[in-house]
Design a protein around this nucleic acid. Structure first.
Lengths: 363, 363
DNA sequence: ATGAAAGCGCTAACAA
DNA sequence: TTGTTAGCGCTTTCAT
């Protein structure tokens, strides 16, 4: 058997440019502000004012303009706006620490966040520009964006500097831990969520929970660990914390095995901050012959499809990645329209989903 | 213990706008073409021509212009270019099928691809606009992009239509299986890679490989399955194929358990098309008490950090997601500059990494 | 309450 | 080989 003649190709023909281009009767491309103005019987200035809510028009005019705009499916050309000096509707988004060198964090989470954010942006007539984890200052400085969203920042990201110099607003997902750049933040209330998890674990009889999380200095990890340490201290238990450089199932498996097979203290349950890590712990449990949940409890911060397996579902905190992305965009939009930053983080609610991995009969 | 006073906030202060804005001596923002022209002692037309390679200038002039541009760190304002009707340098990228409704595909792969693509774009002075999996035609039509990249298309994506109407080039990662839109494609040679995997499995003594892949009609899945079926047919073995709607570890685990515990035909190894799926198979093996590799072989299409666990590394085909992203951008750029589409797909080389999951002693 | 007109930075005819 | 100039679509003073 051979690979035949290689894969079958998609139909590949010359550029489509010649197809229905420059059709004489159709106005090429999107409708312009002039067409709207003409249709509404007003000047383009009026259209601009109405559509930008500069509120100095009669209700009648406003209504006509809006109707005309709707009918034409009009929306301002982003380049023209940008050129004219007002926010063009381009927002940079960077997933911090996510560089090419395989430092791959909880990926399903980020993809969902990205999806929620870009979707919200599109709804608002804006667009999200994806930035690689590593990007030179020069290239960033040249980007025609109105603001930026930084996911899981440490606080030392170049993009923060660049935006500061530009006087452009930044929204972070999670708090930057170092640096003093003024940002607005969308986050989950991780301390409370952590407490809820710990209390749940205790309530079903797990007495020595351990934490596995990222070694990066990101706020969610700090929040979880801090809360956890307090909780353990209050019960006079030694805290058990593993911080991993690579958030992979394999790394979590090794860490869990190590903790489960050492002298003491040995955990009887795990609270991990990524779905990948939960899978790793489940693998460790299986290979050690420890049953989940009867002999080991497991909770994930982050509820992805992987946690909802019919075979062995895992208790997880839904932290609403899509919602986080969406709210980040909305917050940035508000900042862009001149609203001052809120004086505290905006919290996306979390939801603990109890599943089999912690469903143990009380002793 | 309580959650203390909630999380600690990042420093949140008023907008930075007032800091070093409108400094009287500094020209606000990036240098313009005029400044370059002035510095080089030529007209702005000349600068434009030189920088866009319209090649009608003396070498001396060209050199001076380029020097001036470099010195100023000049690069054309993307909005001005866009407005003036030439490619502005904005490219849309969409991961097909990746909508908000948790249809989450092999995520590490996509994140790496995204990173490679955005990095390449930035290097070339362009920027990538992230599109949600689901986006209305209207919103897409309004996007000021010069072209689009569609990852793992089926062929019925709205963005394809929109770009066709616009006469804008599209590059896909994987071939669209339906529809007849003219696209250029970056891909791996999956048939050959599959063959290599199957031959490797056979060479170490696995006789009944099974496939687990996506239920989506995407080209990589078709390529793998088609090649596999031929191979099995040539050896008069019944093919064993599971196609999953959700590409999660849990789904793969169920599928693998089912296949391994049924009457016949029962596989002795798996070739799965995502790292998540490989993890699922590993979980199934453990819970069934089957040792990998001695009693079950496992190969993943896609080599992520998760496959390289020190504890139980998995044989995997590195399909170069970052490179795929990068080449997609480059190909689109070539199309944008008028080059005709190549008449066949551009292949990113793959590399089979042999690891423990298939390291079995020959019988 | 509404409109006229001046740019924003760039590209591309068209002139020279 | 080089320069002049007219827009691209929009926002925004400044008049009316």
């Amino acid at each position: 058997v051979t690979a035949a003649e290689g894969p079958q190709y998609g139909i590949l023909v010359p550029p489509v440019s010649s197809q229905n281009r420059e059709s004489p009767l159709t106005s090429r491309g999107a409708p312009t502000i002039n067409e709207v103005a003409a249709l509404a019987g007003v000047s383009l200035t009026t259209v601009s004012h109405v559509l930008n809510g500069k509120g100095r028009n009669s209700d009648a005019t406003r209504a006509r303009v809006i109707a005309a705009a709707e009918r034409l499916g009009y929306s301002a050309n982003i380049h023209a706006r940008g050129l004219a000096g007002s926010p063009a509707g381009l927002i940079a988004i960077q997933i911090s620490g996510h560089s090419t060198e395989k430092f791959l964090p909880a990926s399903a989470y980020y993809l969902e966040l990205l999806n929620g954010a870009s979707s919200a942006a599109l709804d608002k007539g804006m667009a999200l520009i994806a930035l690689p984890g590593s990007a030179e200052r020069g290239a960033l400085a040249r980007l025609p964006v109105d603001g930026a969203i930084v996911v899981d920042p440490q606080g030392d990201e170049t993009i923060l500097d660049v935006m500061r110099d530009r006087g452009a607003p930044v929204v972070t997902t999670g708090r930057p831990l170092v640096g003093d750049y003024a940002v607005s933040t969308v986050d989950n209330d991780h301390p409370t969520a952590t407490l809820e998890v710990l209390e749940h674990l205790a309530s079903v009889g797990y007495e020595r929970p351990a934490i596995i999380t990222s070694a990066r200095r990101v706020s969610y990890a700090e929040d979880v660990i801090r809360t956890y340490r307090r909780w353990m201290a209050a019960r006079s238990c030694p805290p058990i914390v593993a911080r991993l450089k690579y958030l992979t199932a394999g790394a979590a498996e090794s860490a869990a095995r190590r903790l489960l097979t050492r002298k003491s203290p040995v955990p009887d349950s795990f609270f991990v901050t990524t779905d990948n890590l939960a899978i790793g712990v489940a693998m460790a449990a299986r290979s050690l012959g420890r049953d989940i949940p009867s002999s080991l409890g497991l909770v994930s911060l982050g509820d992805t499809a992987a946690m909802q397996s019919p075979t062995s579902p895992i208790t997880a905190v839904d932290i609403g990645p899509s919602r986080v992305g969406k709210e980040s965009v909305h917050l940035l939009l508000r900042r862009l329209s001149g609203e001052p930053p809120p004086d505290q983080a905006l919290y996306v609610p979390t939801m603990l989903h109890l599943r089999r991995s912690t469903r143990r009969s009380r002793d």
